[in-house]
Amino acid sequence: MDIFLQQLVNGLVLGSIYALVALGYTMVYGILELINFAHGEVTMIGAMVALSVIGVLMGAAPDLPGVMVVLAGILVAIPACMALAFGIEKVAYRPLRKAPRLAPLITAIGVSIILQNLAMLIWGRQYVSFPPLLPVARFEFLGAHISLLQIVIVVLAVTIMAGLWLLVEKSRLGRAMRATAQSKEVAELMGVNVDRVISATFIIGAAIAAIAGVMVSAYYGLAHYYMGFMLGLKAFSAAVLGGIGNIAGAMLGGLLLGVIEALGAGYIGDITGGFLGSHYQDVFAFFVLILVLVFRPSGLLGERVANRA
């Protein structure tokens, strides 16, 4: 029982990070029907930029409280990722807006590779560790351990998701985004500057990704130029699980995927009689992805099936 609860907690924490990254995939897909494979790398760059800022600040102002240092890292990472995503859209995707759908998709993979290699050049191939700046506190809840960091991650993620929900459902920009997702031409006829709405979509997704990137590196205690690949693939799986293009679906899919993964990792040893260990945890995300694609291609909350290649 306590292992179940422990893994459930771990899964929800991981899942809320997946959900944040999945939002970026799903928002862009909703508007452009483009799978922005570079989004995982934007998340990675968020983590790397934050860690660089943290490193510099620790050297320059050793007396600064750890929380402030991390916060400063996040506050620099967010605009950095926003600018990056704005640039990616403008340079790599916008010229291909009217091209066959395969062209921007392959371009996205290209951008992803470029960003990975750029990150490797800047930050090197080795793991960058997240310095122990955050207060370590643990609570016990029905036999499960919950750290302060875990609580902060979940609370922050839920707050961001609620904020995004409000933005999309209630604001003028949100309404324009939803209108653009349905028909770019008619949105233009309403006086919407569609290019600007598309840029805004990328920028918002990137800001959220930057925070998720810092969360993930704080949670695991490290960052790496290659971390965006697996994280991106899992978040993409989460978005598909929830129904790609659907914002609530990305949130649900992320949380579910995190829980499935954590529970799977917790029990895989027992189930296979010790033959497979918890390091197979990555398998679950893709197992789930395959099941969804076979049995419910439109995802849990998806309304329509994308039938174009």
Binding site: R175, A179, Q182, A187, V192
Partner: peptide, 22 residues
């Protein structure tokens, strides 16, 4: 436009709000 071009997944009220977007 021809074929009306209403936003099918927005409510009637939201469609009218979009008309006043500018």
């Amino acid at each position: 436009p021809e074929g009306r071009g209403v936003f099918g997944r927005l409510t009637v009220a939201e469609n009218l709000d979009m008309g006043a977007y500018i």
